[in-house]
Design a binder for these strands. Structure first.
Length: 249
DNA sequence: GTACTCTGACCACTTACGTCA
DNA sequence: TGTGACGTAAGTGGTCAGAGT
């Protein structure tokens, strides 16, 4: 607004000589006692009526045309210069209030964002804990299956050596997929773990959760391993409409 | 057409004073 | 009654745009 107004600096220059002369003449005939030296400012506040008129005029235009300034000065019994100064001060006050309003607005929006950020942080923490629990649950059966398959392997090796055969072990010939391995793992879970299977493993492995969790070194809690993981899909619900990564951009 | 000066309006900052709790 | 905070009229210095030379 004020940037545009700066462009208008010289727009009333055609009035200037006339207005200045009129202003000068008017100044000598009116309240010249108000214009004193700097050290002895005999400042007098304008009356409520004067302020009201000035305010009304300011509402319609923040910059006064010279003719209107003279007219208003006459009406209010003030010097044109006083009217000009009043408008000048008024613009400054208005601008500073405007800045204050904008500052408050920005502060409010910052506060709201900050609180959203905090709640998302908490949600993230909760999800991490849940994920860690899942990881632990998955790790236990894997360890158990590994120990049992080692026993089987040992047995088959023994029989192979006995037969002098060249048959390779199954794992070597056909690497199992993560899903297959998961099913294999599920073969050895206890009855108690079956309920866990329904609750947790009932989810399809579309999102790579099983293979993701297979690392079993706790590294899934590090941010770089989160790229292919969507918390919404894992839990099937989310309390927020926005995406968590919005906060990291 | 260009460079310079003058003038008036404006703004940001400051000062001085009146008012009020 | 004295005083400090606050609001505001007015002063100051710098910038800009338009007019005249």
């Amino acid at each position: 607004m004020f940037e545009l107004e700066t462009m208008e600096y010289g727009q009333y220059s055609s009035y200037s000589a006339e207005a200045a002369a009129e202003e000068e003449a008017y100044a000598t005939s009116s309240t010249s006692s108000m214009m004193r030296k700097k050290k002895n400012k005999n400042t007098k506040r304008f009356s409520d009526e004067q302020i009201k008129s000035l305010e009304t005029m300011f509402e319609t235009e923040t910059r006064l045309e010279p003719r209107k300034k003279l007219q208003l000065a006459r009406e209010l019994g003030l010097q044109p210069r006083q009217v000009a100064i009043w408008f000048q001060n008024k613009r400054a006050r208005w601008k500073s209030k405007q800045l204050e309003r904008e500052y408050n607005k920005l502060q409010n929006s910052y506060n709201s964002l900050a609180s959203r950020f905090e709640s998302m942080k908490k949600e993230k923490q909760t999800l991490l804990i849940q994920l860690q629990k899942l990881n632990d649950l998955i790790q236990k059966p894997i360890e158990q299956s590994q120990s049992s398959s080692q026993v089987k392997e040992a047995n088959s090796m023994e029989s192979e050596s006995e037969n002098g055969g060249t048959i390779k072990c199954e794992a070597e010939v056909k690497p199992s997929t993560s899903m297959e391995r998961s099913e294999h793992v599920l073969d050895v879970v206890s009855d108690d773990d079956t309920s866990i299977k329904v609750e947790y493993f009932g989810l399809e492995d579309e999102h790579g959760l099983m293979s993701f969790a297979e690392h079993g070194d706790g590294s899934l809690t590090s941010p770089e391993n989160w790229s292919g993981f969507e918390s919404n899909d894992l839990l099937g619900q989310s309390s927020c409409d926005y995406q968590w990564w919005d906060f990291w951009s």
